[in-house]
Design a binder for these strands. Structure first.
Length: 424
RNA sequence: GUGGGCGUAGCUCAGUUGGUGGUAGCCCCGGAUUGUGGCUCCGGAGGUCGUGGGUUCAAGUCCCAUCGCUCACCCCA
């Protein structure tokens, strides 16, 4: 029995990887337009980092992390999200001193031990963005606009939902009001009864129709915001309006990580089955300090690349087939030797070149050239060798002409290259 | 952690009330007279029917177990 990949771990093979390259290239391009810089951070961190940031009682920390002892016994965890490692690096490298506002992004795998399903894997990939050093509402608006723009340029439709979770000043009062409200019902679902004790905010997200009926009149966090948070949220909305980004306010929206404050948002789609969020994030003003860094506010978001890839693939958009510049069809042992050398020399000169090493029939080699999507084929047999020339066939126009091979391979190779890219 | 669906060729899948594994499609290989691709035609290769038990004269088909995949709950990107 052959060894297979772990459950929830997937290969991205040729034919699929092109979609990923498109996503990455598009995201990078837009991120750079907004002044974001890439940062690469480790996949493995001390477990403490995630417990402190994400929250001890969250599902992620309690039952989804790949946590194991290092050889010396200290506890390690494969990162379940990108914010904590990036902020750790921000603090550790003193990036706050380099620039007042740091816009950082990272692209890579995250790990959560969940039951796999559509759009959810154990190793998944995110584009993760953090803007650290400012709490200006326009930064929030700009970040959401940027996320929306990435999706737009990928040709994906998504709706933006926003909310404010308040701050440590106003949230406790709301939590109490909410808890008092929920305690009034005795026919809530089991999940809500459980969540009532762990994280009351999350009951608002319940999918049970019965529960939702009750929550219609639940106190809204938006009615409990302190003056500062209320003003901030208004300004965020104002910023989105100025940029013409459409959104809906969803006061029931909650986040699964404890560090969020004030602005939170999700980018949602209807085309992915149960996993509707393709991007989500929010503000985390106390987090950097909590991790031992300077007292600076921050906001960030992540996009799930698997989900983006699924959406792109079900749109059946036509990604251009990769093609090669030249196929060398060599006939006979002498031509095979010569072709082998030419193949390498031309690759060194910058051309993508292929050939068959088995000295098969010309017909067969032409077939291979067609499959490889070669733009040109260079036909080389004993006769051509004797005359120091070869036949160059344009596969699209079916045009054929002789090319001279004499002398230094670099000289005629360059000439050939020019002809391939600028055929009369 | 809890449920549902599904495991037959590299891939997508037929397989009738149990009666010898499909001329199926795609892919791959070879050929259609001498050194010219895509289309077409012909031929070929490729399978422990996920695995292990059981029932039966006979199991891809029925039963049990097990592993895997998948979708959903939960949670989340």
């Amino acid at each position: 029995m052959a060894v297979k990949a772990l459950k929830g771990f997937k290969d991205i093979i040729p034919g699929e990887v092109e979609t990923w390259q498109l996503i990455e290239a598009t995201a990078r391009d837009i991120l750079h337009r907004f002044g974001c810089n890439e940062i690469k951070v480790p996949i493995l961190e001390k477990t403490k980092l995630f417990k402190r940031s994400i929250g001890e009682t969250t599902d992620i920390v309690e039952k989804e992390m790949y946590t194991f002892p290092d050889r010396n016994g200290s506890s390690l965890t494969m990162r379940p999200e990108g914010t904590a490692p990036v902020l750790r690096a921000y603090i550790e490298n003193g990036l706050h001193a380099a620039k007042p506002i740091q816009k950082l992004y990272t692209i890579g795998p995250m790990f959560r031990h969940e039951r796999p399903q559509k759009g959810r894997l154990r190793q998944f990939h995110q584009v993760s963005v953090e803007v650290v050093g400012t709490d200006l509402p326009r930064v929030d608006a700009e970040l959401m606009a940027m996320a929306a723009l990435i999706l737009e340029e990928l040709g994906l439709a998504a709706s933006l939902e926003i909310n404010s979770l308040g701050c440590p000043k106003c949230r406790p009062a709301f939590n109490k009001a909410l808890l008092d409200f929920i305690t009034g019902f005795d026919d809530l679902c089991d999940d809500c009864l459980r969540r009532r004790n762990t994280n009351p905010l999350r009951v608002l997200d319940c999918k049970s129709a019965n529960c939702q009926a009750h929550y219609k009149d639940a106190p809204s966090i938006l009615d409990h915001l302190c003056a500062g948070c209320d003003e901030h949220f208004s300004a965020v909305k104002g910023g989105l309006d100025l940029l013409g980004v459409s959104y809906t306010v969803n006061s029931f929206m909650v986040r699964g990580l404890d560090y969020y404050t004030r602005t939170t948002f999700e980018l949602l789609t209807n085309d992915l089955g149960a996993q509707s969020a393709i991007g989500a994030g929010g503000r985390y003003d106390g987090l950097v300090a909590q991790l031992g860094g300077p007292k600076v506010p921050g906001i960030g978001f992540a996009m799930g690349m698997e989900r983006l890839a699924l959406l792109l693939n079900q749109q059946e958009d036509v990604l251009a087939d990769p093609e090669i510049d030249l196929f060398i069809a060599a006939l006979g042992p002498a031509a095979q030797d010569e072709g082998f050398k030419m193949c390498h020399a031309l690759r060194a000169l910058g051309l993508s070149v292929a050939m068959d090493y088995q000295d098969r029939s010309l017909k067969n080699q032409m077939k291979q050239a067609g499959k490889a999507k070669a733009r040109f084929v260079l036909i080389l047999g004993d006769e051509e060798l004797a005359n120091a020339q070869a036949v160059l066939r344009n596969m699209e126009s079916h045009d054929q002409q002789d090319v001279a091979l004499g002398g230094d391979i670099k000289a005629w190779g360059l000439e050939l290259a020019n002809r391939l890219f600028d055929p009369e």
